[in-house]
Design a protein around this nucleic acid. Structure first.
Lengths: 215, 215
DNA sequence: AGACTGAGTTACTGAAAGTAACACTCGCTG
DNA sequence: CAGCGAGTGTTACTTTCAGTAACTCAGTCT
């Protein structure tokens, strides 16, 4: 059947078109932030709104597609850092540093991924329906949990522990990074050290401060 | 001058009115979520939109006022847990548990505080202008940093370290709580234990898993 | 040729934020 | 008492934006 071949060609053609539209959308979002209007995105792509809606359903769909791209890219570099041939501490540091370098280098992408809710107008958020945390953080947490469960000996209830830690560590990295990005209180390398120290139990090990109450 | 007395009375009257409006707004937001419209809030208060705008400037102003209330309330209970007369680990656990109990008991409030961006329509977000993280988390991080700096002996660069840890720990608590609230993979008490274990360095202390690669 | 498909358009609806201009009601003061 | 200033409130509007309906036009297949 050449109709199949035909459909295939058409399929890849619309795929390509979709990619073009996503690139245009990306340019606008990087330029104007997540509050870019569908009209602006369509104009950047040289077309008009209904086309966008045909391809992506609604604004949430477009933003979701855009987020998946960036999220995949970031996850790839993080996986590389996490899988590097080195000791545990070195790998934790490398992963933290990779994440921080990414958000430092492209704050617009970061803002879009973490704060996409400006898109959906009507009640339902087509983006992160139901959950508060950005999908990126959820995926990151789950991936980290897998790595931990796979490689660290945690005894009984290891799976549960690994998931809690995965999400917890990702949240720590995220919040510290967000604050650091806004305030810039220290160098990236120092921040990485401080966070790794925290994960290495320095809080528990430190003594009470003389003159202060016991903590 | 009795005009001063007059103004004072009027001042408290408008204060009272403002409180009433905030309570109405709160009812609507708790019922419909953060995407409640100004019309809906005005209707709940038995008035119309322009009154709200006179009192709060814009939607961001209203939401900010609402958030301050809830944030203050939560911060109070957290301070109590943090200041309880007990050992460090017990206090960390109590604080974690207090936070988790709060978001568990009132998920609508939680959703509003963490994800308020659905409010502002036009580019500028009147709520958390510039920063990604909800103001609640920033305040929490700063407060925790103060407590840590005040009570834990961290040697040189203690202030910097304390702030990093404050924001990091708050982020850990937040992300883990968010995930836990959606998935409910374990009891609250277990989650608290797992997170405290993480802060106590169990990740660094655990051995490599037999059969898995080194981590 | 004639029908079908899909990219594209114009022109609309509907919801929501925010505003302008006008009306009612006090309490005070000449 | 007249009247005025400050608040409270209203209706009716503008603007902006997501989303949609209905149409056009160009190929393509039978």
């Amino acid at each position: 059947m050449e109709s199949k071949d035909h459909e295939e060609r058409r399929g890849t053609a619309t795929e390509r078109r979709r990619e073009e539209l996503l690139e245009a959308a990306n340019r606008v979002v990087m330029r104007e932030g997540p509050e870019a209007s569908m009209n602006a995105i369509a104009a950047e792509a040289g077309i008009t709104k209904p086309i966008l809606y045909r391809h992506f359903g609604d604004k949430g769909g477009l933003y979701r597609a855009l987020a998946v791209r960036h999220t995949d890219a970031l996850l790839d570099s993080l996986r590389a850092a996490l899988d590097a041939p080195a000791g545990r501490r070195e790998r934790v540091e490398a992963t933290l540093d990779t994440y921080l370098a990414a958000i430092e280098a492209r704050p617009q992408v970061y803002r879009f991924l973490m704060h996409p809710a400006d898109g959906g107008p009507r009640g339902e958020e087509g983006f992160a329906a139901g959950q508060q945390t950005a999908p990126l953080l959820r995926r990151l947490g789950e991936e980290l949990a897998e790595v931990i469960a796979e490689r660290v000996d945690l005894g009984p209830s290891a799976a549960e522990l690994a998931r809690v830690w995965g999400h917890g560590i990702v949240g720590m990295m995220h919040a510290a990074g967000d604050w650091w990005l806004a305030d810039r209180p220290c160098s990236r390398a120092q921040l990485v050290q401080h966070l790794a120290d925290l994960l290495w139990g320095r809080l528990a090990a430190a003594g009470d401060r003389v003159g202060g109450r016991a903590f």
